[in-house]
Design a protein around this nucleic acid. Structure first.
Lengths: 332, 332
DNA sequence: AGCGCTAATTAGAGCGCTCTACAAGGTGAC
DNA sequence: GTCACCTTGTAGAGCGCTCTAATTAGCGCT
């Protein structure tokens, strides 16, 4: 399966290799006649440029690498889609690697990208220490899709999680709710910000926040709901850490024959496919995931083109109202 | 950001470039002393091998490419995970590209992989014509994760969809159901095989299959359920084309106050995260998606190592019983 | 000391392409 | 005819690495 090279094409067309190279790169410095001749030879031989050789010789790859810690997570795959869209617009290729949820895998995936000398890298929420991020950023333009305590030297793009939680509180308060509880997501990425945003928004309105610890899964939602409904004064609205957890809350309330949203309102977070299902129809927070990918790519390209100061972008989430929330019952 | 090359390391360590190359490739032909010296220089300079140059010079990439038509679809991402696992075991890298659901994108993604001269390619269900698959296979070892009418010259790995449908019928019949209906998935990939498997399995048992046309989505499930329950003799069990469609069926039955599974049993397909939710708890067909990726990689590696005859592998799905199915009501 | 043999190291020719610098062939103005 | 200038094409030196073949070092042995 020895593939033809540029020299083969040149010989076949009776021109120099340099001319073939120009044709392959769509140079305007080629006459129409030669171009046609070269293209004909190329397709006759089944020629296909060798990306390795091309990138080595040109010193640039025209490719951006995306490292995702977890391809299962629709969050990241949609982000990747945004990256692909913007990259395509800029005429760049996208190569994806994944760490498959193991930290060692993430390191290896980054190494692969670094060894490929991609023009830049987008890192989707890795578990790395900030110092490791810095090390990567020192080697190539980098955009991290994560939140840092200290503003890092690389660009970052992330969702304003606490703003999302604020939208939830605003929505519920407008509906007349005052006893609002949050089943949080523990220490999972984004969860602390959501809780903090919830607490802040409640205090801001002079309300007492109830929070209970949980996880980003269904079981945590069930447990949380059980504990909350056992309270002397149960909440009239429950804000779950994410849609999956909200599903658990919903399942538990159903076993108690508590009507949603008539007795208790439920809000999820993430606007996953779950939230849209007719059987669940969750009010939730939508994150413009594609937009994240797009902005990340745009920032990356700016960096590649020479910008030196770091930029940190915060993307606004939005509220999606479905049928799991309604006016507070006129209890007291 | 000019990165150090092998020559820089060699100069720093006071040895030849060839020696550095041997060290980088973990050759046993290097003395411990030199190895240590070289590694020290490499890390002092922050040296990182250039994959483009390495692959160009060695003529092999040690990488397998995976092209997925759609990263949103958890089916493919899990397949990719299987590929990654097997590849890691074989010491190969994995690079993923995606067509983002557009056919032009898929072509471009394949081109990228072909230009990269990866050692082989795994193609996750593209919309290509068989002839295009053949063209790709002529250029590099290829495994297609799709079903073909004519056995193609490349290797294929796919799920035995009709067997899955057969498992569903077997399960329902064992529970005493005889009036079983299938809301199909139209012409979506895999759907025709599921329908055919259903029909065959029913006839095999002397039962009359009822099928109604649909899609792989929730709405189709609702519509299908509505039409089926309007029948003079509605079915006692509904086999939906996939979990999403089953969710629609379930939602519709709930609006009719039909108890599941007491009055009507429901079966989904795919064993997605939906099926496992407490609020849904669907009996469904599980597809060993990771296994598909693993087998695909193994076949690919065999091919890379010289096997010439095509292999076509069929993976067995399995039944997962949850609480959406139960004994047939003792109606007649 | 000299020999054979293995282990360790190196020189140097590419891999397939890009890119700079230059050459050849027109064209038009004078 | 000569010169300047533009267009089109080409030679040839790399890009950073691998790999073959050759060289050198090291060691035990007579």
């Amino acid at each position: 399966m020895a593939q033809p090279t540029m020299d083969d094409v040149a010989a076949h067309a009776g021109v120099s290799r340099a001319l073939v190279s120009l044709v392959m790169r769509d140079s305007p410095r080629v006459s129409d006649a030669s171009r046609a001749k070269v293209l004909a030879s190329a397709s006759a031989l089944g020629y296909r440029p060798n990306a390795w050789a091309r990138n080595l010789a040109s010193g640039q790859t025209n490719t951006i690498g995306v490292m995702l810690n977890d391809l299962h997570n629709p969050y990241f795959t949609e982000v990747a889609e945004g990256v692909a869209a913007s990259a395509a617009e800029a005429g760049m290729e996208v190569l994806i690697t994944s760490g498959w949820q193991r930290e060692s895998g993430e390191q290896a995936a980054i190494e692969t990208l670094l060894n490929l000398r991609t023009d830049g890298i987008v890192i989707g929420a890795a578990r790395f220490a900030p110092s490791f991020f810095e090390e990567i950023a020192r080697q190539t333009p980098t955009v991290a899709l994560a939140k840092f305590d200290e503003p890092p030297s690389m660009d970052t793009v992330c969702i304003d999680e606490s703003r999302g939680a604020g939208l939830v509180v605003e929505h519920l308060v407008t509906l007349g709710h005052t006893r609002i509880a949050h089943v949080d997501g523990g220490t999972s990425p984004g969860a602390p910000e959501r809780r903090q945003g919830f607490v802040d928004a409640m205090y801001e309105r002079g309300l007492a926040p109830i929070t209970i610890s949980g996880e980003f899964d269904e079981h945590a939602g069930q447990e949380g709901a059980r504990n909350l409904m056992d309270l002397a004064e149960p909440p009239t609205a429950i804000f779950a850490a994410n849609d999956l957890s909200a599903t658990g809350v919903l399942a538990h309330l159903r076993t108690l024959d508590i009507a949603v949203p008539d007795d208790v309102s439920i809000v999820g977070y993430d606007d996953t496919v779950l939230a849209g299902l007719g059987a669940l129809s969750l009010t939730t927070i939508h994150q413009p995931r594609q937009l994240i990918g797009q902005r990340a790519t745009e920032l990356l390209i700016e960096r590649i083109n020479g910008r030196s100061e770091a930029t940190h972008e915060l993307i606004e989430p939005s509220l999606v109202v479905r049928s799991s929330t309604g006016p507070a019952a006129a209890s007291d």
